[in-house]
Design a protein around this nucleic acid. Structure first.
Length: 223
DNA sequence: CGCTGATCATTG
DNA sequence: CAATGATCAGCG
């Protein structure tokens, strides 16, 4: 699955496409794009996101940059329960574990990716068959000053640990709105990191995630 | 392997 | 029953 339609040329066009998806279910969309639909997401965790990308014309790629570079918009599908609760944390980006001297919040990938996010809520209750899960109304979000401050604070605190070789001391409990968690095929995967004495060592790759309560507030405020 | 898209599944 | 740590698939 990839090969996007033509990419939208403006935020207005992007939003128009996103709004026209609201109310549709995943079965219809998959059928329209002639995409095979798995029975569940156990072995297809990114399937919903990929389908939405296809529909909206996001440029599929594994680059650390926004989905719609030309528009400065990052696309995120977010699983929501029947009662409107956010069901999962939101992955933002991989955390840099080496060569981070001089790296500031303003220059970070996290900051850049979160400048403008298009949230697409999708029903995520596991008892709803994938085909019947409905897509919700899109929400275009830009962090407020307060939100930015919270994110920056967490990011700086976490990055401080990483820079002094204490990444292994950081758990998902650190941070109010942004957390650091493993991000790899499995816990055996290793990547370079800074050691206790500044030397190069190896550790399981980590990623930055938005905590559910933070995302919940974003969606609630604007719904 | 690193990064994208994320959700799973066990634990507290 | 929410949250943490672990995991799955595809691509360059």
């Amino acid at each position: 699955m990839k090969k996007a339609l033509n990419s939208p040329n403006s935020i207005e066009e992007l939003m128009q496409r996103a709004e026209s998806m609201a109310g549709l279910n995943l079965g219809l969309l998959a059928n329209y794009h002639q995409i095979e639909m798995p029975n569940d997401l156990k072995r297809h965790k990114g399937w919903v996101g990929q389908l939405i990308e296809l529909e909206l014309g996001a440029l599929a790629g594994s680059k650390p940059e926004p989905d719609f570079v030309h528009l400065g918009v990052e696309l995120k599908t977010i699983p929501i329960s029947r009662s409107g609760k956010v069901l999962e944390t939101t992955y933002v980006s991989v955390a840099p574990l080496t060569d981070i001297q001089g790296l500031t919040w303003e220059n970070s990938v996290v900051c850049h990716k979160l400048q403008q996010v298009l949230w697409i809520p999708v029903q995520g209750d596991r008892d709803i068959p994938l085909a019947q899960r409905q897509i919700g109304s899109p929400i275009l979000w830009q962090p407020s000053q307060e939100e930015t401050q919270l994110l920056k604070q967490d990011w700086e605190e976490i990055m401080e640990f990483i820079s002094i070789g204490q990444v292994d001391k950081v758990t998902a409990r650190h941070g109010e709105v942004l957390q650091l968690r493993p991000k790899a095929a499995n816990s055996q995967v290793l990547t370079d990191s800074i050691g206790r004495n500044g030397e190069l060592t190896q550790t399981n790759p980590r990623g930055f995630y938005l905590k559910t309560q933070f995302t919940q507030k974003i969606l609630s405020q604007l719904l």
